[in-house]
Nucleic acid binder design. Structure first.
Lengths: 213, 213
DNA sequence: CGAGTAGTTGATGTTAGTCAATTGACGTGG
DNA sequence: CCACGTCAATTGACTAACATCAACTACTCG
């Protein structure tokens, strides 16, 4: 998080589920701070292929990937009614001038984004389907925990198809992986309601020492 | 490219093939501008899995993913003898203060990195093996072309295993894909020497209109 | 020259994808 | 309120793509 929203006047914008916050090709005029709600970002190809590249929630900054360009290069789709704080890009540039510390914070936020993406490349490149799904659940859980929500019990805001796209799988495969993790009693899952029953075992299966909980 | 190296004293460093430029966990002290040579970056997991996240050549800036941290979070391995210009991070911060334009350039360079990574997520998430390999060759070709080298004829600086890791495949699959593209007469390949014989057809098979050449 | 490494290719195995049927939730309008 | 249509999710049967294992070749470098 870049703390940018503390140093300028922001426009608060409510966006309903199903709406686009911005779309590929639209002019890039602002960064967007997610104050509430839930979104996904999608990369698009010329021939209509689509890849979910991430899920965003409170505290996340959207649109940074378009810095230096005139237009957005991906879609941001609201999955759960959101309140977005718009940080007009000219004001951002202003603030960066006035408060030198912000420069470093912004660069750090961008760098963190790169690191996050690369960790997912590692997950997708080296783990089989079920373990990717486990990694996804653990990531979601730890992000929710950082916001003060329960890490053990939560509602998925996205459909199986979105999870599948993000993990480079098909939705049937995600569904089977969830069912199997349930049979192992690592989780319980009913439609979009998820409970993590055995976090250490989940973490073991994605090859990381248990730090969450 | 961030033009940073034009605004400060840089240390020039020769690094031989096989050496690490930096390793996961080492203190982060500088950004690295690739003046010559060829490198790969690798993301590592706690349990020893490894993922190649990119290949770098002249004009690329390395280490940006560690901005905001005290230590590097990945490995940078030299594949072909390199000359690296070190930009000590304190001097970078200095320059950002002195030359406000650089802030924007650095942020833009970081944003470009994010966009690049996301395009590869799209490739890996939506294209089958052979088309990933075609996309890889076309990307390499266009980067070489931008540097004034031939886009139609070049030497791969990395092994099949590195290409495979980058594309989330196995090295045998890459080998077969290359052989098949050769049988189709889209390319010719002998060990590491590659010729692109039919760029439009290669581009068609990755689903992008033909812009290269 | 000989060992070691990188690449290719073939045979076989496994995982995830495809296709299809079914169930359950939700929303609308009769 | 219930019937209906729609959409999301699950599950099964089958298939295809890629991985695995193994043999072999050809460079590379002491």
């Amino acid at each position: 998080m870049a703390h940018l929203q503390r140093h300028m006047v922001v426009t608060r914008r409510k966006v309903r589920a199903g709406q686009y916050l911005y779309r590929n090709g639209q002019p890039f005029r602002a960064l967007h701070f997610v104050h509430a709600g839930f979104l996904k970002t999608c990369e698009l190809s010329e021939d209509g292929r689509e890849q979910v590249t991430g899920f965003r929630m409170h505290g996340d900054l959207l649109g940074v990937e378009s810095i230096g360009l005139g237009a957005h290069t991906c879609d941001a789709v609201v999955l759960d009614d959101a309140e977005i704080w718009e940080l007009p890009y000219p004001l951002v540039l202003d603030a960066l001038q006035r408060i030198p510390e912000l420069q470093v914070r912004l660069a750090a936020a961008l760098a963190e984004e790169i690191r996050r993406d690369r960790v997912w490349m590692l997950v997708i490149g080296t783990l089989p389907a079920e373990q990717r799904v486990a990694a996804f659940l653990l990531d979601l859980a730890s992000r929710l925990a950082r916001l003060g929500f329960s890490a053990r019990h939560f509602i998925l805001r996205m459909g199986r198809a979105d999870i599948a796209s993000f993990l480079a799988l098909k939705h049937e495969t995600v569904s089977r992986a969830l069912s199997h993790l349930e049979k192992l009693e690592y989780i319980s899952v009913l439609r979009r309601e998820v409970r993590l029953l055995d976090i250490p075992k989940l973490r073991a299966c994605v090859g990381t020492p248990c730090t969450l909980q």
